[in-house]
Computed example of a mutant assay.
Amino acid sequence: MPTDPAFEIANPDGRPDVLLLCDHASNRVPPEVCGGDLGLPPEDMARHIAYDVGARGVTLELARLLDAPAVLSTFSRLVIDPNRGEDDPTLIMKLYDGSVIPGNRHVDGTETARRLSDWHRPYHDAIRARIARAEAVGARPALISIHSFTPQLRGRAPRPWHVGVLWDRDSRLAAPLLELLRAEPDLCVGDNEPYSGQLQGDCMWTHGTRRGLPHALIEIRNDLIADPEGERAWARRLAPILRRALDRAAAPA
């Protein structure tokens, strides 16, 4: 069994009608996985391939500003990706943006099952527990997932967006959020960019779409939140926008 939990809870007594999530908050490799070292150099473990740079800091500051609880992962996406379904072929990456992951090269079914049991499922169980806690007091929490993306993948075109909103079939929160972000004159805003939110089995599908909860995934370009000052600035910018979008999402149709 792991020595440390697969998740952390921030602001546990915050408002029950909002739940913040951060799937890729950490680049930590637990000691139970390859002795805590996947065989990558430190510069690779500091890249987006290992975690979402800046996302944890933005999430924690938003939890404070919105007075909302947050569930954050405590392990690298290279250990196992909590934003993928259990049967997704990219659940445990062996090659990512030009870097071979030595510690994952020989992962078999037994090791995959262990990582699912020890890290992937406990993270999702923590989200389910927070949703159940909110529902126990009559709230239907809106889910807001915070991610970041690299300005350019190797061999690909530069990405112009400052921020993107990912969503699938439920636009209750995504639509007002996109409208409010696009009203900011200095922002280039992506609608399902740089990735599509239409991925069956991902975190928003699992906890939002399947449960009928309003939800949206926010992607921030990671050079904008690469230090604590940038994290705080973006959280302060997003907080009032999110308050207004949440109000609109909760308004009767």
Rank of each mutant, 00 (worst) to 15 (best):
A175E: 07
A175Y: 02
A175T: 08
P176S: 00
L177E: 00
L178G: 05
L178I: 14
L178E: 00
L180Y: 00
L180N: 05
L181W: 00
R182P: 03
R182Q: 14
P185H: 14
P185W: 15
L187M: 12
L187T: 12
C188Q: 10
V189M: 01
G190N: 13
G190K: 07
D191Q: 05
N192F: 10
E193Y: 08
E193L: 12
P194R: 01
P194Y: 07
P194K: 04
Y195M: 04
Y195F: 14
S196F: 09
G197W: 11
G197E: 09
Q198D: 14
L199P: 01
L199I: 15
L199D: 03
Q200G: 13
Q200V: 13
Q200I: 13
G201V: 13
G201D: 11
D202V: 09
D202G: 04
C203I: 13
C203S: 14
C203L: 15
C203V: 13
C203N: 15
M204T: 15
M204P: 06
W205H: 15
W205N: 15
T206K: 15
H207G: 01
G208H: 14
T209F: 15
R211M: 11
G212I: 09
G212E: 02
L213H: 04
A216I: 12
A216S: 13
L217P: 07
L217C: 14
L217K: 07
I218A: 01
I218K: 07
I218F: 09
E219R: 04
E219Y: 02
E219L: 01
E219D: 03
I220P: 05
R221Q: 08
N222G: 07
N222M: 05
D223A: 08
D223I: 13
D223Y: 11
D223T: 13
D223K: 03
D223G: 09
D223N: 15
L224M: 11
I225D: 04
A226M: 03
A226I: 06
D227G: 02
E229Q: 03
G230N: 04
E231D: 01
E231A: 00
E231M: 08
R232P: 00
R232I: 12
A233F: 04
A233T: 07
A233N: 03
W234T: 03
W234Q: 01
W234D: 00
W234A: 03
A235C: 02
R236K: 13
R236H: 14
R237H: 09
R237Y: 02
R237K: 12
L238F: 06
L238Q: 07
L238C: 03
A239V: 08
